[in-house]
Amino acid sequence: MGGFLLKLKRGDTPVYRLLRAVARFILNNGSIPVPRFLMPILSVFYRLHTGASQLCRRFLMTLYIEPLFRGRCSRVGKHLTLSNLPYILGHSEIEIGDSARFGHNFMVITGRFLDHPRLEIGNGVSFGDRCALSVNQEVVIEDNVTVDDDCRITDNDGHPREADLRARNAPLTARDIRPVRIGAGVRIGSGSQIMKGVTIGEGAIVGPNSVVISPLPPYCYAAGNPAEIRLQDWRSAAE
């Protein structure tokens, strides 16, 4: 077998050349040659294919996904953009402003600890893919905030701090839950994490993959794990 393969690689007769071409076509993902005169017809088929799938998605979105999501939230403004049905676990009250955008697999998770957990999302807020919010008391995201992919915003610790309570799966206490507020126009880089009790001032920028554990002043630039303020005012440093 090894000898044959070597011959296939080296052979210079027409048979081996043909076999080699076939093997290369199969192994290297060769493409089928298409005559030039077929191109306009294929172009029409391409448009039909993409158009049909877009149409199906649009149909499902307007008739099923968007009404369901609007039914789950207590208030949703005009011009909502969704990618798929957000996963909302628990009893949180969700208020969303106008022209909000949500990426794929948006998630809101709420525990059993408090009676009226509240998530408020302002006008023009945009979320990237795979964002997850953990809301147990209150998370307020003001107008025109941009949250990139893979971000997490949480107003609680998830588990109690004491080892034995954690082992018994005891509920969170008031000390483990503190509300989060993100000011207008804040930009949060991808993969960042906003921890409990954090207030981010208006227009601040959080760098990618940061973990924010302390409040940030307005118009600062913060990055790192744990996040530190790198620029007090990014507007003056931008020039």
Binding site: D157, R161, Q193, M195, G197, I213, S214
Partner: peptide, 17 residues
């Protein structure tokens, strides 16, 4: 099982997940 007395921690709230 039952009530367990916790040692009061003087540290501020821990910023963990």
């Amino acid at each position: 099982s039952g009530t367990t007395q916790m040692e009061p921690t003087s540290t501020p709230a821990a910023p963990q997940e």
